[in-house]
Structure formats: structure tokens, C-alpha cells
Design a protein around this nucleic acid. Structure first.
Lengths: 136, 136
DNA sequence: CTATATGCAAAAGCTTTGCATATTC
DNA sequence: GAATATGCAAAGCTTTTGCATATAG
């Protein structure tokens, strides 16, 4: 399941305690953490870790394509370790909860014919609204 | 087509030269301006206009639902005057160009059954990639 | 041993806020 | 004339950067 660390080792990614802790913080299902939340978790293990290191590491992971980035209105960037299953997101505008969403492949939006020559790299669908528990 | 300024007057929105200039800056098709770009345009007319006024005004317009907000990786917020036609966006990761995208209504993603009780407020689809002219 | 990751502190965006003054209705 | 928009400057947040030191491979 959590092969992120394995994938990174296979890439000969230079491993340090701080980097391992960042990777650790990003373990799980439906994880969408801000850099600051990652820092908090990392500091539970390694209290001296600097914010810069966490930012550097997250940026590298994103650049390598091993972690996804999620941009949500107003709020800070979120990091999503799930890059193996194609998915999208739902956001509760009330409580800030983010949930992974799988679309049936025939429900995935297609690049419209009005954009000939557009080379698609990423597709993001964001459902924003009020989640069931906030709606009462 | 139906005019933002008219809609605002109908709402008894208090009009000032600065606000009128902001609304003016946001006129057109396929317009996606950052707050700073709006400020530049406003200052062409009213050089003393403060950044705070532009931010206040844009926030109000968004809050009223008369202007749309677009959040793009890394870059600053963009403001989109087109709120009457339901549409999405394509972003060129190379040149930063943003283009409005219309999907056929049966291509619009549906809230999945896995989220019962979710009250959808907004749906954003973002196609990211390389535009035809950047691809050469 | 060498390349590079780390921590620190400072700076760099972007956006918001407080307050006195000016302006719209 | 009363409510509120404006400008200014300062502060707030998130993220990036430069540099000396520490450390992984």
C-alpha cells in the first residue's frame, strides 16, 4: 500500500531523518495536509526540524510527481500522497474537509474540441459545497 | 449581453469612481485578471487608487456572486467577470494563459453517489497543460 | 570525501486590517 | 448628515532564499 518510501528509495532519493518524517506524515488514505500541518507532525518526531526543510522536501516530492498538490480557495496549499489512483476532490466550504473522489472513467471530462493542440498534463475537478454532516 | 455595472446598480451598490474603474477593468470576454492587474488598469484612470480599495471591491464582488474567483497553482488569484455562463477553465502551464471552457451539459461531472447528502455549491474543472502555441 | 540537506533568519509575495479622512446618497 | 468607501501604512500569512554548517552515501 504505502510504497511512497519504496518508490523514493528506488529513485536513489537521498534519505535523511527529516525527509523520512515528512514522508511518514503523508501516510494514509484521504490525506490532505498543509505544509504547516506536515511540519507539526514532523516536529512530533524531530522537534528541531525547520520549516524550510519541510517546504523544500514537499516541493521536491511534488516535482518528482510522487505527491500531489491541491489548491483551495483562500486556504494554503494541501499535499496529497495519493498519486497512484487517479482521483479528484470534494471540499466542504463549512468545515474545510477534503475528500477524494473517484469518477467513473466515462464521467471524466474530456478536453473539448474547441482546444485543438492543447496538450493535457493534469485534470482537476473540485466539487465545493456543504458536506452531509455540516448540513445537519 | 447582460452588464455587470447594471446588475450592481440594480442592487443599490454604492458607486464610487474607484469601484466603477474596477468594474470597467473587468469588462470583456475571457478576462482573468489578478488583483494587481486590476489595480494597474484602475490606476490608468485614477492613479491615486489604493491597493486596499481594489482588494475590498473585488472581495465584495466575489461575495455578491457577481465576479468569479479562480485559484491557480502558484500564481495569485484571478478574477473572472463571467458568472452568467457556466464554464470551466484551461490553463497553460508554460505561458499562464487561461481560457474559458464550455462543457456540453452531459459532460459536466456529477456528484458521485459515494457522497450522499453533499450539497453542491460550485463545480470547478481545470484542464492544465501546454497550449497549442507554446507547444510550437 | 564530496555533494547536498539542514537550520536559521531574513525577505518576498499576496492579502487583510485599523484608523482618520473623504465621499456618496 | 449619516453611513460607508478611501488611502495609507502596518501587519499577517504562506512560501522562498542565501548562507554557513552538518551529514548521507
Amino acid at each position: 500500500m504505502d510504497d511512497l518510501l519504496q518508490r523514493l528509495e528506488r529513485r536513489d532519493w537521498r534519505l535523511t531523518p527529516q525527509r523520512r518524517a515528512v514522508v511518514d506524515a503523508l501516510r494514509g488514505e484521504n490525506v490532505h495536509l498543509s505544509a504547516d500541518e506536515v511540519l507539526d507532525r514532523v516536529r512530533d518526531e524531530l522537534p528541531e526540524t525547520s520549516r524550510a526543510t519541510v517546504y523544500n522536501t514537499l516541493n521536491e516530492l511534488v516535482e518528482m510527481g510522487e505527491v500531489g498538490e491541491l489548491h483551495v480557495a483562500g486556504r494554503s496549499r494541501k499535499y496529497d500522497p495519493n498519486v497512484t489512483d487517479r482521483h479528484h476532490h470534494a471540499l466542504c466550504e463549512s468545515c474545510g474537509m477534503v475528500q477524494d473522489i473517484q469518477l467513473r472513467s466515462d464521467d471524466e471530462p474530456q478536453v473539448p474540441a474547441s482546444m485543438p493542440g492543447f496538450e493535457l498534463r493534469r485534470l482537476d475537478v473540485l466539487f465545493s459545497g456543504i458536506c452531509a454532516s455540516c448540513a445537519n
